[in-house]
Design a protein around this nucleic acid. Structure first.
Lengths: 151, 151
DNA sequence: TTAAGACTGATACGCAGTCTCAATTTGATA
DNA sequence: TATCAAATTGAGACTGCGTATCAGTCTTAA
């Protein structure tokens, strides 16, 4: 955990940013939460935790740290970005349940390698990618015996 | 083209929607444009074409038709959705150049099949997916001889 | 201590997309 | 063809995420 913070601090230094107290609060809170959080979640958590940080700073900090690859931002529902720490974690992609909102992580080395082939084919230099599969999770999948869910 | 419109009309009928004149205008314009268009592009094109359709109707129509899989909506830049007709086209995914905005389509059967394995593993019922690779296209990729582009 | 520059926070703003609701259109039926 | 209930439309108000602004604060180095 302190290790993770250190990585982020180093990244920021290398880019000429300072890890100020408000920024540290944002990053620490993000690292402390497991799973996905929105910017507003963080703002709330910080305020409730007695260490409020302004919206602007939260957004700015997330923006800066996102560039490092140490945290990832995803857009699942459209219009609300969720963040998750990636420090020390392997890359993964997501299944998103369009009924209950559940997020399942998956990683498939073979897909990653095929992506390498694809980008090579187009002489494209990849920076990051987003691979999301939307559908119904096991519990939300309409059972054959039941009426199909009305969309 | 008329064929494509027919497919869309059938889909709408099957869902209890009418293909009214404003909706037909939106769909026809979308089919006429090759490549990607935003909702605002369509609104402009329709107005300039002398057959204006209100924002609300354009958005509603795109929303309805999107459900059919006959048109696809993508979110490349975050905050502005682009649509493309898919009628009679094979599924494909995208490379997006974060420097010039160029969009390259690719399709990789092997990746699609691996996705099937992934969803089966989690007993997930896929409805649609989005696989985007962001980076630099051939012309925007910084050449080794040149200074690296500042992000 | 001081000055330059980075950062913060309150809030105004931008903008894509949705909602509202009165007016209009549609299409099934008589 | 006339009628009417239901669906749709359009103008514009509204929502909500995220960004820009800018005066005031904090750092840092001399």
């Amino acid at each position: 955990m302190a290790e993770q913070l250190k990585s982020i601090e180093e990244f920021m230094k290398s880019r000429g940013f300072k890890l100020t107290r408000p920024r540290r609060r944002v990053v620490e809170k993000l690292l402390a939460v497991k799973g996905h959080v929105t910017a507003d979640d963080l703002i709330d958590l910080l305020r409730k935790g007695g260490t409020p940080v302004s919206r602007a700073t939260v957004y700015r900090t997330l923006g800066i740290v996102s560039q490092s690859g140490l945290i990832d931002g995803h857009d699942f529902q459209g219009g609300k970005k969720v963040y998750e720490p990636m420090v020390g974690r392997a890359h993964h992609d997501h299944l998103f349940c369009i009924s209950c909102g559940k997020v399942i992580e998956f990683s498939e080395e073979a897909i990653e390698r095929l992506q390498d082939l694809v980008v090579a084919r187009y002489r494209f230099t990849p920076v990051y990618h987003s691979h999301k599969i939307f559908g119904y999770c096991e519990t939300c999948t309409p059972k054959p015996a039941l009426k199909a869910r009305r969309s």
